[in-house]
Amino acid sequence: MFTVVDGDRVERIAARPGPGGRPLAPLDRPLLGWERRPHGWCRGDACLPAARAAGVETPDGVDVVAFAELAGHVAVLDAEERALGLAAAAPRLTPAEAPDFELDGVRLSDFRGRKVALVFWASWCGCRYDLPAWEERHAALRDHGFTVVSVACDRSADDARPWIEQAAVTHPALVDAEGVVAELYNVINVPTAVWIDEEGRIARPQDTQTATDLFRSMNGLDSQESYAALRRWVVDGDAGLDAAQVRAHLRVPTADEQRARAHARLAVWLAREGRTEAARRHVDRAAALAPHDLAIRRGLMPLLGTDPFGDAYFALREELERAGIPIYRPLPARPGTTA
């Protein structure tokens, strides 16, 4: 048996090791939600034609890694642990339509007709102290057709919930334990905010925004400026960026970033299974592919027993600073200005 980890879905599949430890699955059984039919492999109305699928089929079974890649995934294999991590090969992210999702029973599209600030935070970040201030912004502007939707990038919901409860939030406060929403929006660090307009379009892409000045000496960000910009957008309809600037600043994930996320998914599953050393291997591989992705590198520290506020984090900051990799990525407050 092999385990396939794909976001919030963990599937055990009947397969045996083939060459190089690659899993080979039976041809006559469903695989990753697809079923083999005379004309190809199908899932609902979508089909992979038999001629294309023939390249991943062998007399001994289907090469699961090759099949996953044919079906539109990045796949990373841990043959020793008999596990496979998947991420989308080419996730769809455009200004024209913010990716919809459902998390904790809440759908983003439920808020169509209102402006939404998706606010990504985590208990392993000092931005956890900003959650009450985001709630204050939500309360102050909700009568103007505005909603904060906060998304905790914690790998354990139990880590995020005390901070949500302490903030006494009335806005939707979600926990993205499997990193599905963070992947959709290519969030590589927190705090990150994405503004979405009434028609479901991205009005301001991934932007480092704070709601308090607690860590201004470290991040150089002015929370009052970000609130003034938010208020201008909500009340006056001025997002501070025109359509061309939104397209220019939208960070679409690279192939290496997606492969790093596949390694991260394996790392999370392995850590939860108590296979800590194997998990560390995949964290290291993710870091090599996407050294700038603190959502992976710092976000996985608690699962591996490392203090995300301790020496390891400050060593990580120094590493990125030496490499010239920015930790915070604020966007221009107004067209033609610098942040």
Rank of each mutant, 00 (worst) to 15 (best):
G61M: 12
R92C: 02
V64W: 07
E80P: 01
G85I: 08
A83S: 12
G113W: 01
R128S: 07
A71T: 10
V74A: 15
R82G: 00
G85C: 05
G55E: 14
V64Q: 06
R92S: 15
G145Q: 04
L131P: 08
A66S: 11
E57G: 03
V62H: 03
A75N: 13
A122V: 10
H138Q: 03
F111T: 04
G105H: 06
L77C: 05
W124F: 13
L141G: 05
G145F: 02
E135Y: 05
V65L: 11
R128L: 14
W121L: 07
P91V: 09
S123E: 15
G113K: 02
A139H: 08
H73I: 00
V116L: 02
T58C: 10
L141Y: 04
W134D: 01
S123P: 08
L118N: 08
P49H: 03
A88Y: 09
P99Y: 09
D63L: 14
R112E: 11
A66W: 08
A66D: 09
F67M: 11
E81R: 12
L86I: 04
A89G: 09
P49R: 00
A50D: 13
R128D: 06
D63W: 14
H138T: 00
L84N: 02
P91D: 13
V76D: 07
E97H: 13
V56I: 14
G105F: 07
A75R: 08
W134E: 00
P132R: 02
E57Q: 13
R142W: 06
P49G: 01
